[in-house]
Amino acid sequence: MTAHSKSNTASRVLRVQSLSTHFDLGFAMVRAVDDVDFEVERGEILGLVGESGSGKTVAGLSILGLVEPPGEIIHGSVFFEGRDLTRMPDNEIRQIRGNRISMIFQDPLTTLSPTMRIGKQMQNVIAAHHRIARRDARVRCRDALGKLGISSPEERLNAYPHELSGGMRQRVCIAMAMLNEPDLIIADEPTTALDVTTQAQILQEIKLLRERTGAAFIWITHDLAVVSELADRLVVMYSGQIVEEGTAAEVLSAPKHPYTHGLLQSVPAHNRDLVRLPQIPGFAPTPVDRIAGCKFGPRCKYAQPKCQERPGLQGAVSGRLARCFFPLDETGDPAEDMR
């Protein structure tokens, strides 16, 4: 809307506008996603970063209308090709899912149906959107597996999920998500459950796929190391809100929000001496906590009286935003005017 509508419509694939998804638990209203705005450019990898409970997964599910009750999108819009996905009839958004926008999930061991062959599950994804001969569909599935570095893909099509390793299964899921050549793939921590070697391989394959297909990604993760390797731009979430946004290089090298700064400080780096890692004091607010003012305020070592008010997303440069009255400067210190 204001600062970050720099991109024009042609290069933009998705715009999330004032999105709020709440869970009515009866005794409390959980604001899992609270007035979130962001955009995804064509072919870019947008890292959506946050701790567990920050609302990043619910944000991803909300885009495709996959939030289950008691969760509900109570406000906002998700624009895709000029149409608002949140107001689309069930059958129309179904035609978007898996076809124009796909999603992959965290645990590859439970993401595939255990009683159906891989090939059948993949063919179903094509058949849900296209009328195509079964043999042709099968060839497409085989090629899709091949592109993800799966050896002897023809045999894998006849396998059941339990016959494959976790890494293999996640590759199958990614191949499925890419079958219909979507414009956008929402990836919800897809490498978290995998070992580091497999994770590195898959990240490499994702980069290749992005180059080859031009698909955009929303890469949801809590792992800053992954995001630093992969993402073009970062959106950092805390307690249901975006607290910082910018290019990956900017956010990682010169974070403006004290929360992002704290997160980066607590990442172990192998060139550091064996000293105790700094950590952010306190705990992330539970979803039912109501905090007046800045939600990070109670844990922030730079908190000021003004932080009792609620900060908005602000920034001097377009696309470089932080939800903080006293954003940090390049050296990681609070800006002048607060001292």
Partner: peptide, 20 residues
């Protein structure tokens, strides 16, 4: 999870119920 994934892949509701 497998039902959620199949929904995210746009599998039709009837197919989801009977085949999955």
């Amino acid at each position: 999870d497998y039902v959620r994934f199949a929904r995210a892949m746009g599998i039709r509701p009837a197919k989801l119920l009977f085949a999955y």
